[in-house]
């Protein structure tokens, strides 16, 4: 009996959580009038021309162009974020060095620092270096382990790997780097996957940074292209097209999440983020 009521409650919550997304998917095939007359998500008829229209966008470029732009940011950024956080976490977890305590507290300070304070000086910094309207300001920070949270997660995972592994590797003649990549990396794979997926999703979601850095429409990532589609079609008409653009824009995030789901959830639940 008690179990049943628990199921009822969580099923109801799950329905509330997922229905808007289902509705969004359904609405991307609906005509404007149908969107605002029916609560049911399944469309009366499927009109693929809306998607085709949406793909072509109101700009001179297709959605495909914006996808490529986004991946030109995401792929290097993800690789850089993984490598730089891995090195920093390895240093913190496995080595002793002068001022170690000071540097680990910097890690925490960096995590608590509100992003909004950084945004303007960084804008001025990139403006003065003449790199505005390029992808460098969006990608370069990842090379320097900007995301303290990632280093933090990895340190906790490194701590769970016995130090005997390192010693055994050393006896077999592995140097510092080979120990990391050949021995330790396979042990902390779930955490590395989580970091890569997080970087992917966060970059996909990031709006404020591209908004201030990228000026020419040709270089817009997906998030800015989405905003553009709202601005250029206005509020009162063509809602169905905007909704179709949104659904297309969500496809990469949903795909990556679905592919990595198992390892990813393991990575965040297995102690990484929990206190």
């Amino acid at each position: 009996m008690k179990k049943l009521s628990v199921y009822l409650i969580i099923t109801a919550v799950a329905a509330v959580m997922l229905y808007p997304l289902l509705w969004l998917l359904g609405a991307s095939f609906k005509s404007n009038s149908e969107i605002f007359s029916s609560v049911w998500f399944i469309p009366d008829s499927i009109d693929l021309s809306i998607w085709k229209n949406a793909w072509e966008t109101a700009t001179p470029y297709t959605m495909g162009h914006y996808f490529i732009n986004t991946f030109m940011i995401i792929i290097p950024k993800t690789v850089f974020a993984v490598i730089s956080s891995l090195l920093a976490a390895y240093g913190f977890a496995r080595f002793n060095f002068p001022l170690k305590r000071l540097f680990s507290s910097l890690l925490l300070i960096g995590m608590l620092m509100p992003a909004i304070v950084k945004i303007m000086p960084m804008f001025l910094f990139w403006r003065d270096t003449g790199l505005l309207d390029t992808y460098i300001p969006l990608v370069f920070p990842a090379l320097l382990a900007e995301e303290g949270m990632f280093v933090f997660i990895l340190i906790r995972f490194f701590n769970s790997v016995p130090r005997e592994f390192d010693e055994a590797a050393r006896i077999d003649g592995c140097g510092t780097m080979r120990t990391l990549f050949l021995v330790l990396l396979p042990c902390i794979k779930p955490a590395v996957t989580s970091i890569a997926v997080f970087t992917f999703l966060w970059t996909m979601n990031d709006f404020l940074n591209p908004l201030i850095i990228i000026q020419s429409v040709k270089k817009y990532p997906l998030s800015l292209a989405l905003r553009l589609s709202v601005d250029s079609t206005g509020q009162s008409y063509e809602q169905c097209k905007i909704i179709a653009v949104s659904v297309i824009g969500l496809i990469p995030s949903i795909t990556v999440f679905a592919l990595a789901q198992k390892k990813f959830v393991k990575g965040i639940t297995a102690g990484g983020l929990s206190g």
């Binding site: 730089s84 090195l87 920093a88 390895y90 240093g91 913190f92 496995r94 080595f95 002793n96 060095f97 002068p98 170690k100 540097f103 890690l107 090379l143 320097l144 382990a145 280093v151 510092t176």
Partner: peptide
């Protein structure tokens, strides 16, 4: 060595 590893950070 550790310092070198965390220097990018």
């Amino acid at each position: 060595t550790g310092l070198l590893l965390i220097s990018p950070f």
